[in-house]
Design a protein around this nucleic acid. Sequence first.
DNA 1: GCCGTTTTCGGCCCGACTGTTTTCAGTCG
Length: 583
Amino acid sequence: MLTNRDIADRFEKIAVMLEIKGEIIHRVLSYRRAGESIRELPRDLRAIAAEGGLTDLPNIGDTLAAKITELLETGKLEFYERLSAEIPPGLVDIVAINGVGPKKARLFWKELGIVTIEGLEAAARAGKLRDLEKMGEKSEKKIIEAIEALSRRTGRTPLGKALPAAQAILQRLLAVPGALEGAIGGSIRRGRPTIGDVDILIASDHAAPIMDALVSMENVARVLGHGPTKSSVELLSGLQVDVRVLEKARWGTALCYFTGSQAHNVRLRNLALKRGFSLNEHAFSPVDENGSIVEDAPKTLCATEEEVYALLGLPFIPPELREDAGEIEAAQASKLPALITMNDLRGDLHMHTTWSDGTLSVREMAEAAYARGREYIVITDHSRSLGIGNGLSIERLLEQQEEVRRVDAEMKGRIRVFHGTEMDMNADGSLDYPDEVLEKLDFVVASLHVSLRQDRTTITRRVLNALQNPHVDLIGHPTAQYIPDREPADLDMDAIFEAAKVSGTALEINSNPRRLDLEAPYARRAVEMGIPIAIDSDAHAPEQMDLLPYGILTARRGWVEARSVINTWPVEQFMAWTRARGR
DNA sequence: GCCGTTTTCGGCCCGACTGTTTTCAGTCG
């Protein structure tokens, strides 16, 4: 059974093959854009297809809708089979090598019959590439290096790893004399859960020292490029870092450009063209009716992103929304969401103590949360069946309740401390505590921890059972993904959202950067359906409470406003909500 | 192949860097 991701991958593969074939680039891009649209969908293509809604999706027209339908119904695609007979699919892997694009791939294939990375590496080591047209010894050496780098590389980097690394490099570069301002751009600034490479922008009139500082850092494994204003390095960690330097007067256009997404930038540039300007990272330049830049006409520089959007007739669009997922249209209609911020968070509804697998006592966690400005917390240790997490028996759970009540009193209203549980949804579909225990608790989180590879029907039923229980208030990290090692469980999210809508149960955005679960597209859909959200730390140690900004970033990417998030509510409102749910 | 408050046909963002070249194509973001 093909998933959204399978179909997105297939379209991307077709795009590369068409590019190698020499197809016009716009047709290639159609497949690529369709793949990207599908990858971000919060719903099963199968369900959308059943409703006849495929062509309502962005970048999907009649042709691609028919291809999706064929893939869903037969698991195969006639068009792809024919294309494979013409263009060896192995060439797609070759194009993944840094520095090798469709033209080179075609050259190696046509001239030397190379159709695999192994074949290419052997040819390069045998010195067979250098004599090809537009090739030389240097190119050949670079290909060998890039293939070696490819095998070292582990794919995309979790945001939680990339962001601290990027901040460290930014500080290094800002220390270079002449560096006036700096920012992390790219997918880190947009808050994507995983990062392809680190993009850093520096404002300065003297780019060379900054470029030199980058390539001479001690943790640089390889210099990928070293130009006057733009350089790239690969770090020993495998992370790629791109740095660009522009004048401060151009900071607005530069930061916009460097933040992306590419699709968002294309939309902005099209809007600029409609207003008679060509937009790039340097400036707005007037164009004539043919679309060519008028050379001697004055250009407009923007020092802030606000000015860039203003010139396009738009309000400022927060970076987290810049995915060409409707934010341009919302901005034009003055309907951008008032995105949630860290300051909106009052409570934290999911955390652990030494009673299960945490490092601090109830009292210490309460103090740590208070020190961070929380007004209320819920202690949610693991339930009895989770042996690996030192889960609490019913007796220990009730014992713990006495301690939580005592600590709540001791805190004298500085912070409220509630008693809850993170209860397992067991593999057999049962919940880990009986109703008569759950009803004694202030708040119940239900989570998946074991048997995550069950088939869709079985594992979905586990979550639906929890949603139907009136004592369950929140589904913790709903898909149980673990970035980048573990895929989300194969859940019928349509069914889960429908059930949560009916029961009024909240869904969590878990802030741990290895989870970020729900991810943004799901969070956006949940909010659209009126399902309450909670943004929690799931802290097992006090410093993990500082991971909440990752959850906020994810929520913002999901167009989430504070009012949809139950732990932004004042404690009285939060308590009233849980009471209304049956306590 | 998609898309449309200029268009149902004719458009489709834009520049930096590299290597191999004597002026630019390919790649990347």
